[in-house]
């Protein structure tokens, strides 16, 4: 069992757990993920690492309430435990001194860009971070990410904070600037965001790494559920990734595979709510 030592709600639907997981903490690197499971009937889901402390033996993950599993996770409190927590999985994000790097993150993935920005900064890069949210109320970790960024740009879809618009707009401005010396872009967030970040950087031929988040089961290379086509080749995001060249990813295929269980996800959540007496169809 993996005890939750600390829980924070970063926004009403985005939560942070700091867990006791010394094995994972001892080996964790930026860009890696864990597979977690909550209880005997739970599914295995991947969560990218938001932070870790090897000395303390703790690992921090951040998740957003989307389906049954994450909604149920959000009901856990400090002192509760997760039944399973396996990792660190996947290959670490490759860190080097590239010069100037732009980190782009959207939504709850802002938590997972933090360790990447930190590692890049510590490796001597000039780090520009763009983080996008739907609205001001959903913003979190401005300070935490800002600490490792030479420049921090925040966008909101509704203009309630920072620049109004999508993350691709300030990114395009940076790339189009006459003094552009950006050597790579690293993006993590919703698939559609990573797709459009890649489309934005493509004409500038700026190397762009994306951290893919396909559906996974085992997360160790056994099932192939997370396979993605990259440069015409089938790769497993869990063991060959999760980072890939965004210009070479077959985005439409990835998005279709991510939608494989939409109907089941709705059903699962609805049934869970009904069991707790909070469902829509209750009493009908």
């Amino acid at each position: 069992m993996y005890k939750i030592l600390e829980k924070q709600s970063l926004t009403p639907s985005i939560h942070l757990f700091k867990l006791d997981a010394p094995r994972v903490a001892a080996k964790a690197s930026a860009g890696q993920f864990v597979i977690i499971r909550n209880g005997d009937k739970g599914e295995r889901i991947p969560l990218t690492l938001a932070d870790w402390d090897a000395a303390e033996g703790t690992v921090t993950v951040v998740f957003m309430e989307v389906g049954k599993t994450t909604v149920e996770l959000a009901t856990l409190k400090a002192g509760d435990s997760l039944s399973d927590f396996a990792g660190p999985l996947g290959l670490p994000t490759h860190i080097d001194n590239y010069g100037t790097v732009v980190c782009v993150a959207g939504g709850f993935a802002v938590a997972t860009i933090m360790p990447i920005a930190r590692a890049l900064k510590q490796a001597g890069n000039r780090v520009i971070t763009i983080m996008g949210f739907r609205s001001k109320e959903l913003l979190f970790w401005e300070k935490e990410v800002g600490r490792w960024s030479d420049e921090l740009v925040i966008t909101t879809d509704d203009g309630s904070y920072g620049r109004k618009g999508l993350v691709t707009e300030p990114l395009r401005d940076l790339l189009a600037a006459p003094d552009n010396n950006i050597s790579r872009v690293i993006a993590i967030g919703p698939t559609v965001m990573m797709k459009f970040v890649s489309k934005t950087t493509e004409p500038f031929k700026t190397r762009t790494l994306v951290s893919l988040n396909p559906v996974m089961v085992d997360g160790t290379g056994m099932c192939g559920c997370c396979r993605v086509t990259v440069d015409g080749e089938t790769r497993f995001a869990c063991v060959d990734g999760p980072d890939f060249d965004g210009h070479l990813v077959d985005w439409d295929e990835l998005m279709a595979r991510q939608k494989s269980y939409l109907a089941e996800e709705v059903k699962s959540l609805e049934q869970w709510k009904c069991q707790r007496g909070t469902c829509q169809t209750e009493g009908k």
Binding site: K41, G42, E43, R44, K68, T69, V217, Y261, E264, E265, K267, S268, Q271, W272
Partner: peptide, 12 residues
């Protein structure tokens, strides 16, 4: 993952 018992079990 016992998907044959979905949605009692979470995995579809």
């Amino acid at each position: 993952m016992k998907a044959y018992l979905f949605p009692e079990y979470d995995t579809p």
